[in-house]
Amino acid sequence: MKSELLAIMAEFLEVDPEELQDYKTLEDLNIDSLDFVEIMFEVEEKYDAPVIFEMQKKRTQIQNLGEVLRLTEELILKHRDQTAASASPDARTGSAAPADADG
């Protein structure tokens, strides 16, 4: 998934994916707050998983690109788990928590 996320960013920023190294900061990559939210929008479109809201909350604490990729991937995987759980037989009988129960 990391390479796919890098590809999304590289296309948006019009740079070679190899330039997007984990240690670089958002400032290094000239990613301002609007670029950041647009990139997260592209991620949501591709994975059909909500990441914008959580990533926006964390943006100012994010140290580098590696952290962006890790947190984004975590959110996508968490959403997949929740979606799978809500689609399980237990969920259909109402015994599982709603997918968005923890916000």
Partner: peptide, 9 residues
């Protein structure tokens, strides 16, 4: 439909 985050700009 969804609107892009920067639509308002």
């Amino acid at each position: 439909q969804r609107l892009r985050p920067t639509t308002i700009l």
